[in-house]
């Protein structure tokens, strides 16, 4: 475990050092890439709670990512057009304040996760994978054909939303926000993993029958984990939308759900820093592979295949040795 702790610290520091270097060297685009990696890592950390700890292979987490993104898009859209959001009984003014947007994004992605989870968790295994995938597609098609917020065109937000005391348009300051949130989510994950709830969730992944016999309601434990997981991914979606100042249905696409899983496995399944390592590696790979050839997806696919077949445990597993039996 100590080697893994050291490695985790190195990853956390590395993700901080690269943009700081880029800042001093005047390379704003590298900061943008690092911000992207941090946000995708945050989404991966969310998924890792359900997938790594709970063994719930969700192929529909893009739904929560997209809900978070649209929470940002819709609120900021109403703020920039000065047209309050009419909900029939009452109206809500839009907002450009990040904390309010984050809260909204988290509440709505939690609700979405509650609805999807309540239905999907009635099943398990392959059924669960396919059902979450199908629910993700349902959100995708709805976002495309719903005309109020741009449909397939998506929504452009002219100016990045604000955070009290910071200039969010400055790449390094926006990176700092994302980095702090990522670290907070990692701390939360670590706390959850060690809590009685986390232990029950982990046990339910390995031997659900025994957990049930002890009197712990497996379904409810899983549902809570799924909701927390979706909430964190939703927050990442709101940040991602702010990074691009743009939301569109592509945030709901099933390829994105697949890529979140890729981050986790690339980094190391059920490792605390797995998604972080995976997302950073993925961003870097695409940046470099993309320069090699128009057909770089072939190389990416081959590399992923190699990791699954021959480097089980991903990046962290390879560097930090085999996983010590879980507490």
């Amino acid at each position: 475990m100590r080697r893994e702790t050291l490695l985790n610290a190195a990853i956390a520091l590395g993700l901080l050092a690269v943009p700081l270097w880029a800042w001093s060297a005047g390379e704003p685009f590298t900061i943008t890439l690092a911000t992207r990696a941090a946000i995708l890592a945050l989404a991966g950390v969310g998924l890792n709670l359900a997938l790594g700890l709970g063994g719930l292979v969700s192929l529909g987490h893009a739904a929560f990512f997209g809900v978070g993104g649209y929470a940002m898009g819709i609120l900021a859209h109403h703020a920039q057009t000065f047209a309050p959001l009419d909900l029939g009984l009452f109206t809500v003014a839009g907002t450009k304040s990040m904390p309010v947007i984050w809260l909204t994004a988290m509440v709505f992605s939690a609700l979405a996760a509650l609805a999807i989870g309540a239905l999907s968790l009635r099943t398990s295994g392959v059924y669960f994978i396919m059902i979450t995938l199908a629910f993700g597609q349902m959100f995708y098609y709805f976002a495309i054909s719903w005309p109020a917020y741009g449909g397939e065109d998506g929504l452009s937000i002219w100016v990045r939303n604000g955070f009290p005391g910071l200039n969010t348009l400055d790449p390094i300051q926006f990176f700092a926000i994302c980095y702090v949130l990522l670290m907070a989510a990692l701390v939360l994950s670590a706390v959850i993993a060690r809590s009685p709830f986390g232990l029950a969730l982990n046990a339910a992944r390995q031997v659900p029958q025994r957990v049930e016999t002890v009197g712990i309601p497996v379904y409810r434990v899983r549902l809570v984990a799924f909701v927390i997981s979706g909430t964190i991914t939703g927050l990442a979606g709101a940040l991602f939308a702010d990074l691009n100042r743009f939301v569109s249905p592509s945030m709901f696409s099933w390829q994105l759900s697949g890529e979140l899983i890729v981050f986790i496995i690339l980094g190391g399944t059920a490792r605390l820093f797995g998604p972080v390592a995976g997302a950073c590696l993925f961003v870097a790979l695409e940046h470099w592979l993309g320069g090699l050839s128009d057909y770089w997806h072939i190389y990416l696919g081959a590399l992923l295949l190699g990791v699954v077949l021959f480097a089980r445990g991903g990046l962290i597993g390879t560097l930090a040795g085999r996983e010590v039996a879980h507490d």
Binding site: L40, E259, H287, G290, G291, H297, L300
Partner: peptide, 9 residues
């Protein structure tokens, strides 16, 4: 299938 991240081709 196109991964989401930017490729600097």
């Amino acid at each position: 299938i196109r991964p989401i991240l930017s490729a600097a081709a």
